[in-house]
């Protein structure tokens, strides 16, 4: 009863194909078709940032992007940051600075932070706060997330 469309794209550095429903969003494709569950559903309306991924180097809410629009593009998800040394620093900083509590917002937050630091390599705390304002967190009060992102950039990855 639904219309399928075949697309081809690069996901975390690997070329691949998928057959997706035309009404499907990228979040659902990643989770339900491809089976990568690191990208989270928080609201489905682009308000919480839990589903943040990078498409052609730009961060966006995967719940707001049709899966068919991934055709020909380069996607990076939290799983794809596994081989990126800069992202290692970010991940370590999140752990060591206590930026993770329930952890549900964390993958989206890290995808956004990674994008932010590529765009603004010398981001200070105020810049980081603006940079993650589209990512909601209910546990931490954001302070330790901001600390972690700033520290990752500074290379000060040991806890204060």
């Amino acid at each position: 009863m639904s219309l399928k469309h075949d697309i081809e794209f690069t996901l975390n550095g690997v070329k691949r194909q998928a057959s997706v429903d035309v009404t499907m969003n990228t979040l659902a494709m990643l989770r339900d078709v491809i089976g990568l569950t690191g990208t989270k559903y928080g609201c489905g309306e682009g308000e919480c940032g839990a589903c943040t991924i990078q498409v052609d180097g730009v961060s966006l809410n995967s719940c707001l992007m049709f899966a068919v629009d991934c055709d020909g593009r380069e996607l990076t998800t939290i799983e794809g940051l596994a081989n990126d040394s800069k992202a290692d620093a970010l991940r370590e900083a999140f752990v060591e600075h206590g930026a993770v509590q329930c952890g549900f917002c964390t993958p989206g937050m890290i995808m956004q932070a990674d994008h932010l630091l590529h765009k603004h390599p010398h981001a200070d705390a105020e810049c980081v706060k603006r940079g993650i304002e589209g990512n909601l967190c209910r546990c931490t009060g954001y302070k330790k997330i901001v600390d972690a992102i700033v520290a990752a950039e500074d290379g000060q990855r040991t806890a204060p």
């Binding site: 690191g38 752990v95 964390t106």
Partner: peptide
């Protein structure tokens, strides 16, 4: 200051 034991898994989306 002890990092949360489950944080590495959470921070890598696993």
């Amino acid at each position: 200051r002890i990092p949360k034991m489950d944080a590495p898994e959470k921070a890598s989306g696993r």
